[in-house]
Design a protein around this nucleic acid. Structure first.
Length: 273
DNA sequence: ACCCAGGCCATCT
DNA sequence: AGATGGCCTGGG
């Protein structure tokens, strides 16, 4: 158990923010998540949090995952107060943070996300993890490694392609696992060292990754905060709230954070469904 | 029983 | 370059 105060953080909001797919509500006031091969349960009382891990594990893994180094308070304060939509969005999603997710998990998750509802995305991901991820606790499975997904036998391959609800995206996943080999020789963290433009271009080389998917990976994994994925909700926002003209905040150095507030607000109380 | 989902790609002008 | 149709399938 580890208790800590965290500002600008809300578990329910992050679970529903659409950036991550492996958060769950497990009881009235408890949530859980699997990331970096670890299973964590979380409880919130105002700004007081109780996590199921040790302080050592929190400092080692979760502190960075939750992006605790970034001061979201000042970023929220810097939103243009004359922009009524953004002001309301910031208030509405005040506890959202941009999680620092694992690269391969983010890549596969957002390849899956195209033309799929959030519940369907979650189902596909869980099925892949259960089948090919390392077991890390009772009925809890890590996200599989690229090596695991490119060394499937015939039967496993059939399962991935036919039993995980992937449809035409199945081949994108298999090919991405294959293509990852190119980035694994030498330094492990090649993408993090790239500029936004370089990273975006490299990720779009993966088949099935276009501008939107690549921007999601760049933002939610590489944490390049100027990345601003434009999906149907953000497009709807531009059309309805800004008369079809991209608002100034989309060019901000923290555009990705503002995008999350906007997305969460525009999408409304749909939760994870 | 529909209908469409946080797009992408190939195939056209 | 820019526009348009087709795509797998599971949830609501």
């Amino acid at each position: 158990m580890y208790k800590i105060r965290i500002k600008d953080f809300d578990l329910e909001q992050n679970m529903c923010s659409g950036q991550c797919f492996r958060w769950n509500k497990i009881s009235d006031d408890m949530y859980d998540v699997i990331a970096f091969g670890k299973y964590l349960t979380m409880k919130q009382d105002g700004d007081e949090f109780t996590f199921s891990c040790t302080k050592e594990e929190f400092d080692e893994v979760w502190s960075e995952y939750f992006d605790l180094e970034t001061d979201y308070g000042s970023i929220k304060n810097n939103a243009d107060e004359r922009d009524e939509f953004m002001s309301a969005a910031v208030k509405y999603g005040a506890g959202i943070r941009i999680l620092r997710q694992e690269f391969f998990e983010a890549l596969i998750s957002f390849l899956i996300s195209q033309r799929k509802s959030i519940p369907a995305i979650r189902t596909s991901i869980e099925r892949i993890c259960e089948a090919f991820g390392e077991k890390i606790a009772d009925r809890k499975y890590a996200f599989p490694t690229p090596e695991r997904l490119r060394t499937l036998n015939t039967e496993e391959r059939e399962y991935l392609l036919n039993e995980c609800g992937l449809g035409y995206r199945g081949r994108y996943i298999l090919q991405a696992a294959e293509d990852m080999r190119f980035y694994e020789d030498g330094c492990a963290d090649v993408f993090s060292g790239m500029s936004y433009e370089e990273a975006l271009k490299s990720i779009m080389n993966f088949n099935g990754a276009g501008v939107k998917v690549a921007n999601c990976v760049v933002l939610f994994s590489l944490h390049k905060l100027n990345a601003c994925p434009v999906d149907v909700w953000i497009q709807k926002m531009i059309d309805e709230e800004y008369q079809g003209v991209k608002p100034a905040w989309m060019e901000d150095a923290n555009a990705g954070i503002y995008q999350q507030y906007a997305f969460f607000y525009k999408r409304g109380k749909r939760g994870i469904s």
